[in-house]
Design a protein around this nucleic acid. Sequence first.
DNA 1: GTTTTTAACGAAAACGTTTTAGTAGTTTTA
DNA 2: TAAAACTACTAAAACGTTTTCGTTAAAAAC
Lengths: 340, 340
Amino acid sequence: MSSKKISIKDLSNALGVSVSTVSKALNGYPDVNPSTRKKVMKLAKELQYLPNQQAVNFRKKSSQIIGLVLPQINHFYFSKIVESIVELASEDNISVIVRPTFENLEKEKMALLELVKLNVDGILISLSDETRFPDHLIEISNLGIPIVEFDKISKLSPLDKVVTSDRDAAKKAVEHLISRGKKTIAHLRGSLLSQNSIDRFLGFKSAITDSGLTFEEELVIQVLPNNINESQRSFARLYKKRNDIDAVFAITDIAAIAAIRELKSQSIDVPSQVSVVGFSNWQISSLTTPRLTTIDQNAFEMARASYQKLSDNIKTKNNYTSREKETIFIKTDLIIRESS
Amino acid sequence: MSSKKISIKDLSNALGVSVSTVSKALNGYPDVNPSTRKKVMKLAKELQYLPNQQAVNFRKKSSQIIGLVLPQINHFYFSKIVESIVELASEDNISVIVRPTFENLEKEKMALLELVKLNVDGILISLSDETRFPDHLIEISNLGIPIVEFDKISKLSPLDKVVTSDRDAAKKAVEHLISRGKKTIAHLRGSLLSQNSIDRFLGFKSAITDSGLTFEEELVIQVLPNNINESQRSFARLYKKRNDIDAVFAITDIAAIAAIRELKSQSIDVPSQVSVVGFSNWQISSLTTPRLTTIDQNAFEMARASYQKLSDNIKTKNNYTSREKETIFIKTDLIIRESS
DNA sequence: GTTTTTAACGAAAACGTTTTAGTAGTTTTA
DNA sequence: TAAAACTACTAAAACGTTTTCGTTAAAAAC
């Protein structure tokens, strides 16, 4: 049964015409007689000829493949990004090779190396937590391979970037709490080195000071943003010291849920006594009780803008290295639900 | 700056030695003088030679790429599968091209076609809801391309399959409820056509009858497994008719949370008055209040077994078409938490 | 000292396609 | 009717490798 794959040569033999003519007929070149073209097309259909894309790409020195490197896939935000990018690319007949780094710099470097070897047309990357210096990205860019950083980026690289406007988003969230009359607002932040964490903190701070409240260092604590138990314990410690807290702005939905869980366990009502706002709008935030007010990061728009930028870079590859690089900001939405 | 990519030919020119020798030196062939090999290696490192994997694969008639086709990526279970498969494959230096179908048969067919054109070494697929007949899979298999179905499979295809042991899992879950003394157990099931839904229902039924309880048709209702509002409304209708229900076995965690939400809104205590068990062990199930008892589907093991099977098939490709196909069952774990 | 073996290398084909450059034959132009 | 233009085709190179099959020279065997 196993029908062997048929090639242009098979068509050419069967029709008594050269391979060049077959290729031209198939690809719409003008210098082929309509009747010949018809014959070629007909036989191609009959024999179910499928062009060997691998050979085409090799010959054309393009791969029609882009690489997508990111910290994780099993993650609500990132998996939406993967899904969106893959779908957008497929509309352009581009395939996507995904490589998770698990926040490991070595894996990130390995992934990039593999992608370069594969001759990918371009790379989209969201950096691992361990990545301090973006030298490996710059090297790739110098090789003439278009590369766009998104979401978790490095401020040190001269590359195109697409980022969430974390600072504005955080400010918006905190201003919302303030507009609800909250005055003693705690912030559960993440790592001191993560750019997201820094920007969200800065947004928090400027919302506080801009509205005439006094910024208290003590009300800002660091948590592990994706660890609910650790976050809950950390928040519990803070709340013990400062039970005058009337609102919490958390760096992630998980951290927010951790706070809510702790407050519930102490029979503090959310939102009347303490309001809580998260960040990311994970699916889960609409399933909790109370439903969580949060920031939607607009994963699709992040994916779209990143892919678009990369796609543009690929299309104008000739002067890629010399072109001015830009940073694009993705707008967020405040989703107001029951927790605030 | 843009250093052009260097090829074997560049090395060969620089060293005054033939391309064959360079290639052999690089690839550990025995018939090359150790000193020559050293020189080649040295220069290769200096010039940062990277083999053009595209050319290698083309020449070797392999792609070192596998295709992964599934309904969605932005989904806790599937994204874990994607992540796991990609990681396992990367250990074998295999790249993965992912294609979501969004439960659309046309997209599924298109995705497969693209993958075949790309000469992928093999394909892993989880079928869309729309897929009734697996003809397109069989065609591919007949082309000699190894293919393994996983999770959402078709009973009609003579192919290798890896599936969750849904029936056993559901039985286990319901037996757990029975062991807690529950006697009037409702089941929130999914589509009448989906194999998962059928098997979970059959597991539910056999747990009931095997333990001497009477199976009541009325206690089984159909819901949209991933739509919390619809599920809640459907369950509300059921509970209105039958408020003697003392336990619920739901086809997904979402449906389970929907039931819990409805019960809470009626001030029915979970689990003392009504116990609830979900299915899938999504991240969210450990974050709800009460934490949800559920079935862990062991996404990693599903990924591992599927990849392993495909990998074996690829390695023994010569007699693939004629080989006996098998179905592998992935064991599940009952995760007992607070909702039961 | 002749034959045989071995060591080290290179030429060239091959993978499937695209594309350039060329060629015959026909048609148009002037 | 000779030159110019056009039509429809083909040959062959090219993309970067791998791998087969020689080939030469040196080493080993007898």
